[in-house]
Each structure stands twice: as structure tokens, then as C-alpha cells.
Amino acid sequence: MSSFSYALRDSATMLRRNLRHAMRNPFVTVGTIMTPVFMLVLFFYVLGGSIVGGLNGGAKGSTEYLNYLVPGIILMTAALGAEFTALGVNSDRTENIISRFRTMAISRGSLLTGHALANVIQTLISVTCIIVISLLMGFRPNAGLVEWLEFAGLLVLFALAIAWLAVPLGLIAKTPSGANSLSLIIGMLLPFFSSAFVKPETMPDWLRWFVENQPFTSVLETLRSLLTGTPVGNNWIYAIGWSVGLIIVGYIWARWVYNREPSH
């Protein structure tokens, strides 16, 4: 077999290993679903009235706000995949199995690729759960088949970007709790400071500038447009550009961290 087919085979082996881990230790997976569900309930039922009231002069949580909110929750679900990946990579590091892989004749990046691909599958499952729950709550998307496929395509791309950023964080962190904290910058901070929950127009200028220009907002606005038909503008170009850019940066960073001399 060529080295490329070995790389594919080793990555598939590592992916299977990660999926088995996820099934055997379902708390991480459940956690990455429960957190966005909690946010969905919090923002729609608890805060929704006030948020919409502030906009429209008093109203209970409406379908209009739910349609605005759900794409934001979906983005957050995907971003929380960072936690899943960083924890998985970090436990390989702290449990020492990485040392074994390093001295074996296996494709160098396969371990990391396995983690990244596992995150994509994990994200697709979590997002499906969130969409089902949202539909039960009254979410009414108007996407056709093409839009759903485009939605899934962008989600996969974004999940890969998240995973490749989380892999080096998991390698750098010395403990699982360190990995968790680092990954929450991606999983929590960036979704909150985006247009996920409220419109950027309501924010102070300096924050609005950040929110409108950070990578997650363009991805979010594109997902929102595909699901509910809001105007997309140039956002889809930025969404793809940012995602591909982050994948490349994350991949190079991850390989660099993995290949450098193990710290003592």
C-alpha cells in the first residue's frame, strides 16, 4: 500500500477508536448537547420575552425570535465540539498512549485526523438533536432540500475548523481541566460575542465592530440565511473563507505542536 492509503487506513482506525470512546464515555457527548439545550431554554423561555420586548415593545417569546435564536444555538453546539475534541486529545496525552503511537510506524497525523473527524460526526449528531428539539419548541425553518444540504456542508466545514483549533489546545494543556478551559474560549466566548442571541445593532460600537467581524458571525449569518431566508450578503464568502483559513491554520499548528520534541 502507498503511504497515502496507509494514512487513510490509520486515520480510519483512529476515528473508530474515538467513536468507541464516545460511546463508552457518553458524558462528554451528552454534555455537548445539554449545554446548548440549556441555552435554548434560557434564551427562549426565560430571557426571550424581555429580549423581544426590548425590540418590539412587550411580547412573549415568539416564533420570530426562536427562528432568530436557533441558528445561534446551532453555531454554539458546533463550537462546543471544541471541548469534546480538546478533552479527547488531552486524555490521550495525559494517559500516555500518545507516547506509544509516537514510536509506532503509523501515519504521523492519523491520531489528530481521527479526532477531527470524530468531532464532525459528533457535531452532526448533536446538531440533529438540537434541530429536533427546536422544531418541537416551534422553530419554523423555510429551507428547501438544497438549503439543508448547503447547511450541512457548511456545518461540516465549520466543525472541522473548530476541531483543528481544539486539537493543539488539547496537546498544549497539561491537564484535562486546562484543556477544558482553553476550549471554552472557542466553545462559549466566541458564540456569546457574536450575533447568536441578539442583533449586533443593539451593542456598543466597539463591541459591534468585533461581533460583526469575528469569524463565527459570518458562519452564523450564513447558517441563519440558509435555514430561515434572512439576507446573507457577502457573509457566505467570509464563512467559507474563515472556515477554510482556520482549518489550515489549526492543522499546521496542530502538526507543529505534535511533531515538536515532547516536553519533559
Binding site: 500500500m1 496507509y6 487506513r9 490509520d10 482506525t13 473508530r16 477508536r17 468507541r20 470512546h21 463508552r24 464515555n25 494517559e95 500516555n96 498512549i97 507516547s99 506509544r100 503511537f101 514510536t103 509506532m104 510506524a105 503509523i106
Partner: peptide, 27 residues
């Protein structure tokens, strides 16, 4: 084949699955 000072087994896989993982990685 290398066996380090600290055990390098996968704690979320059974003993047999650990060996099968190695078999896969050894092609």
C-alpha cells in the same frame, strides 16, 4: 516494540480491543 516506564494502554478500550487497535495500526 516499546514498553515505557508508565503504562501506555487505552483506558476506554478493553484489553482485547487494545490489542486489536494495535493490530489495525500494524496493518
Amino acid at each position: 516494540g516499546v514498553t515505557g516506564q508508565f503504562s501506555a494502554v487505552d483506558n476506554l478500550l478493553t484489553g482485547e480491543e487494545n490489542l486489536l487497535l494495535m493490530a489495525d495500526l500494524n496493518h
